[in-house]
Amino acid sequence: MSENFIRDPQSRHLQWMGSLLAFAVYVFLLAPIAVVVPMAFGSANELSFPPSNYSLELFRQFLSSSAWTGPLLQSAKVACISTVIVLLMGVPAAYGIARFQFPGRGLIMGAMLSPLIIPSVVTALGFYLYFSYLRINGTTLALVLGHVMHTLPYVLVMIVAGIQKLDRNLEFGAQLMGAGRFRMFRTVVLPQLVPSLIGAGLFAFLISFDEVVISWFLSGPTTATLPVKMYSAIRWEISPIIAAVSTLLTGISLVVCLIMVALKKTTPAQG
């Protein structure tokens, strides 16, 4: 909708109104971040905005309390392990789905993508009941397994999209030259996929790191992740430390968001 054909004053007026409305919505969308970040740099015994004086006190309290650093490390651990597993499993699967026709392909893909549609409370309940039966509830293993299944669909979608942009003739060429299936995959497909791999890995890490519902059902007292700890903290006591934790989470989101935008720009084909 370029401006050049709009001359009528009524439409100018409407456009101006539209932009004004859009800015109001942007403000609404960004309000939570705009409030939480300054609060994190406020002092420890006030819960108001804007803070009257600025300090790093809340971050110091956050990082010196084992009630918070334990869950922080646990989240980092679960997110790292899940990301590695989901990539090891999801990338070859995405290649198989993108490049081969086989019976049951739609069904397998549907099953792997189903967590996108199934409410996470339902998958969480399924894991909870099934893992109680297997007696692994409350362990880090249970959390990792839950997070792997929860992040698999995102990895699958991103990697399949990446593979579909590659030139298949290079793969045929490698196989004609005598490379086995896995050697071809390792030396021809994977190197070309690096931007998608980084993107999918970051996405999986962030989803796992921020995930609340599944972790809420699967974690035990010693395996609580940061979001679980935060969820119960917001429920029971509104401590200003949560502002510092929120700022940390937002910072991680911002970094991931910027890397993703940068990755999109460096990929030659538009994505």
Binding site: P32, I33, M230, Y231, S246
Partner: peptide
């Protein structure tokens, strides 16, 4: 940025 922000935040 809001899209990536945790629902807890």
């Amino acid at each position: 940025l809001p899209f990536w922000t945790s629902v807890l935040v």
